[in-house]
Design a binder for these strands. Sequence first.
DNA 1: ACGACTTTTGGAGATTCTCACAAATACTCA
DNA 2: TGAGTATTTGTGAGAATCTCCAAAAGTCGT
Lengths: 412, 412
Amino acid sequence: MVNHVYDPFRSDFESLDELADRISQVLECPVTIEDANHRLLAYSTHDERTDSARISTIIGRRVPEKVINQLWKQGTIPALLTTKEPIRVKEMNEIGLGHRVAISIWKQEEVLGFIWALEINKSLTEEDFSLLRKAAESAKNKLLQLQTRKNKNEERFQEFFWKLLTGHLYIQEEIMEHFHTLNIIPASSYVLLVFQFQQNVTSKEEQNISYLLKTNQHLKIMLYTIDCNQLILLVSTDNMQNTFKELTKFAHFFVFKMSERYNITNITPVFSSIYYDYSHLKKAYTETREILSIKNQFPNETKNIYTYQRLGIYRFFNILLQKRKSEDYENYALKKLGEYDQKHNSNLIETLDVYLNKDTNINDAAKVLNVHANTLNYRLKRIAEIGEIDFKDPNQKITLYIDLKLEKHLRM
Amino acid sequence: MVNHVYDPFRSDFESLDELADRISQVLECPVTIEDANHRLLAYSTHDERTDSARISTIIGRRVPEKVINQLWKQGTIPALLTTKEPIRVKEMNEIGLGHRVAISIWKQEEVLGFIWALEINKSLTEEDFSLLRKAAESAKNKLLQLQTRKNKNEERFQEFFWKLLTGHLYIQEEIMEHFHTLNIIPASSYVLLVFQFQQNVTSKEEQNISYLLKTNQHLKIMLYTIDCNQLILLVSTDNMQNTFKELTKFAHFFVFKMSERYNITNITPVFSSIYYDYSHLKKAYTETREILSIKNQFPNETKNIYTYQRLGIYRFFNILLQKRKSEDYENYALKKLGEYDQKHNSNLIETLDVYLNKDTNINDAAKVLNVHANTLNYRLKRIAEIGEIDFKDPNQKITLYIDLKLEKHLRM
DNA sequence: ACGACTTTTGGAGATTCTCACAAATACTCA
DNA sequence: TGAGTATTTGTGAGAATCTCCAAAAGTCGT
């Protein structure tokens, strides 16, 4: 039996593994220690009994994403991030999680990591909880040491990444040398992924982002950095069969999670083309900034576009707008249709717009407009008459499509 | 009988009508005198027998166009324009033309008009021909008087028109005043029609053009002028139901006739929008010059376009080209397809081009490409795969359409 | 020259689209 | 209000398109 005053974790341990073993020994249950991003730092080895969640954590050296997700949804992680008290987690068989108790490791107002104790042989008592608190206190110093080491490393990463982004590092061998030194395996193809935030990213948010990136298991992120309101990721695209689909999926995932977990909304994702040469990273960076610039100008129109290629007409929308503003051009067909709409308060313009945006598919457009296909047909005939349009002429249709978009934008 | 030496037309006549009557009296047949543009100047009245062509000429105060056309085709007018001798014309019942003899009236190397003698009561003899020569000589002076008067008038027309074109005349009442003074009825709506020639128009060509315009009966031309290599017409559009169709027809007619009759080719027609206010004539003129400028830049692409509205994407093709040249953009889909074409020497790009230009109509495009519709279908699927194109997305299709046109133009 | 692969062509059948017509309803102007 | 016009909806025939499948022809690398 353990005395209340005596602290079994006071002595200096060689390593976190040693501490994990000691905790395990004292509490008589398997123990794992994770950093704030749920990466495995240490685990006890004396006890062979464990659950499947712990096994995958140890094998993958990180907590599986679905487990993290579950712990978020069900409130454990949010609780751990707000209190210094141990939290008991009920068994969750669907993700292979047995009964366990967790406590967060704090340095001032910041969580450095977590200690998990599995309640396999016994249920932890109030006394055990008190011991856990002491264990967490003891782990803190070890984690801090790790963190300062990590921070120094982090700085070297940052410097390297910015040199690449700004084109200050362009000799192939030099770049590879740096990758090697930083222990990163450079992918043979990559894209640059940029998330633009509404406001500059605070250090608190930076932690959250970092957490989300570290816990994500979708993409191989070689390097990342934050610059004012932009999060910049260098992502490997090796062995990806459907690159842009995957990237889009990740972008949506990230945006969704940021909103769900941290209530940060209005994040604009964007990604460069695929590049093969790291000396082109500057170009990739310029490309993403160009996309962002266009997306910022036409947010509604380009809502679902993330790459330069897919910008389509919005690539040159700006110069068209400028030209339009500088001359007193008016699309004759749209003018006539507008006048007709005004006079008969109909909506031929809207009809035309939907029709063109639905790729001149009558059925689809009719559905959107909530009218019978024949009605749409009739309207299109009237539109062709009134606007003197030949719907068989792609040049005319394209002109209408573009002019409609320009007008819509000018009216806003 | 008439003496060879005696000239019955030597005395001074009060008017051309008097001369016509005298010729008619001497030759014993109906006589008409026309100017170089086949406008009726005078006709004999003593004889009541005549043919239907003469009747319509007198009624309309000009020779009907179909008669002129026939006389061109069949060689009479060209002959009259080269020789000072009388020419005999065979009966042409299909246009109501009886037997007749014509002679041209010359001043130096220029034809001022024609005298026509109908052989109704008798066939003209060699002696009569000699008389006709004398009659033509006698008519010359009268015609010259008319012409100087006409030239003076012409100058006033020119001055007025240029004032309108350059915007130096913009007060409604003043403009109407001028119209009235010049005895022109101002139409309530008008367009400006400009024909651009390859070279500057010579005074010889000017006569031909003038001839063609004066004899045309399709359009009401209020004013016209020639400036270097441009023929500028102010055309009434009153009572025209299908304005641009009519104008196009006339433009084709004019271009065709200039080529057929005078061997002048490569004439580019162009017309402004419809205007209602004569103070906007300057704007109309600017408009036509803008169209011509674009057509000169992209002659092949805009071959069949005559109005600003119909220019469509070519309105801003120039700025797109500039942008393209200044950046190193490459359409990913086209790049991929180009590479594929190169490697497999296929023609996916061409297929795509035809398909898009045929308004994505599979049957039409297949016909142009000389392949089975299923083949085209197959190719389109491959194109969508290789170029990662979604043919349901209008933005993507439009981008391809435009990028194809830009590339085609850049390659030339 | 062989086999693997791509491309072309043809046809049958299902599905979708288009078009003309008719009837019903809405709107307009005197 | 009532005739005349504009608009919407339904129906059905015919055209066009899509989906399969299969055979033939062409291409490429070895």
